[in-house]
């Protein structure tokens, strides 16, 4: 044990540092380039900007109702994530812990959604949304996020429910706990790593989704950040500095939220490990 760590530790660090550099550098480049002019970007793409100003950001923020987009994105993403995790926990628990003969089939039906491009159904979907009166409503996006996030969430949660030792549950049941109680106070607390993963993944895809808002939302006041920023790309196709500022603005809220929340998730991960 000691021997192996002697030679492997430095080797480990070389790997993680190299990969971390590759992971971070492009993002760093995006931030950096947002402070440069187009000419600077092309003449010296790797260099530092000659002067740091927030002017590009100020003009960009002035051009679009960024705070409005931000609020819409937050409402859509948070609501979607809460609902998808609640609904899928219930469903995954049912699929993983009970041996009804149709469970495998239900599981598979849920997985079907991952196997076909949902874009195919965009015309029937649009008609459905129109009939439900959800065009230009944030609910159209929330429902789409829940529905499209369900397959992956069910897959992950079912997998982890299956790894939970059955004895824990049985002990609780002997104390007279019902299904909901078992799920909520016994199993879910143990599933924090998996729940953390599921929350992050769903949050990211809800936050970054641009196809459905593009189709279902036409009012500026209901747009989310990616779509609102997308329109900027068209306006500044030659102004690379502004473009990078736009890209940064579109990505920054997600990163900040992640930094705030990541501690929570990572603690969840470690807590899971101790158990």
């Amino acid at each position: 044990m000691k021997n192996s760590s002697m030679w492997s530790k430095p080797f480990y660090y070389v790997i993680v540092f190299a990969v971390a550099t590759i992971s971070l550098y492009p993002i760093f480049l995006m931030f950096l380039s947002s402070f440069k002019t187009s000419a600077e970007i092309f003449k010296d793409p790797l260099g530092l900007p000659t002067k740091f100003t927030l002017d590009t950001y100020r003009t960009l923020m002035g051009k679009v109702p960024f705070d409005q987009y931000f609020m819409n994105s937050v409402i859509v993403s948070v609501t979607s994530v809460v609902l998808v995790v609640v609904f899928c926990s219930l469903a995954a628990y049912y699929i993983a812990r009970f041996k009804f003969s149709w469970n495998n089939a239900i599981f598979f039906i849920f997985l079907l959604g991952m196997m076909i491009p949902i874009k195919l159904g965009i015309v029937p979907l649009f008609i459905l949304m129109r009939d439900l009166g959800l065009i230009n409503s944030l609910w159209s996006l929330i429902f789409m996020n829940i529905a499209t996030g369900t397959p992956l969430t069910i897959l992950i949660l079912t997998g982890f429910f299956k790894t939970m030792p059955i004895e824990l549950e049985e002990a609780a049941r002997m104390d007279g706990a019902g299904n909901l109680r078992v799920l909520w106070s016994v199993l879910l607390p143990l599933m924090r790593p998996a729940l953390g993963t599921v929350v992050i993944v769903n949050f990211i895809s809800a936050w970054n989704d641009f196809f459905f808002p593009l189709i279902f939302i036409t009012e500026k006041a209901k747009m989310t950040i990616p779509v609102g920023m997308l329109s900027l790309f068209g306006e500044h196709s030659a102004d690379w500095g502004s473009l990078f500022a736009g890209l940064t603005l579109a990505s920054l809220p997600m990163m900040i939220l992640f930094f705030i929340a990541s501690k929570q998730f990572m603690e969840g991960l470690t807590a899971g490990a101790v158990k």
């Binding site: 649009f126 008609i127 129109r130 065009i135 593009l214 189709i215 790309f233």
Partner: peptide, 23 residues
């Protein structure tokens, strides 16, 4: 005036028109 991104314009317009909506 409510424009949509160049590359997605056809998809968005065609979808809306087929559903009897659109600008």
């Amino acid at each position: 005036f409510s424009p949509t991104k160049n590359t997605e314009y056809n998809t968005i317009l065609n979808t809306a028109l087929q559903a009897g909506e659109g600008p």
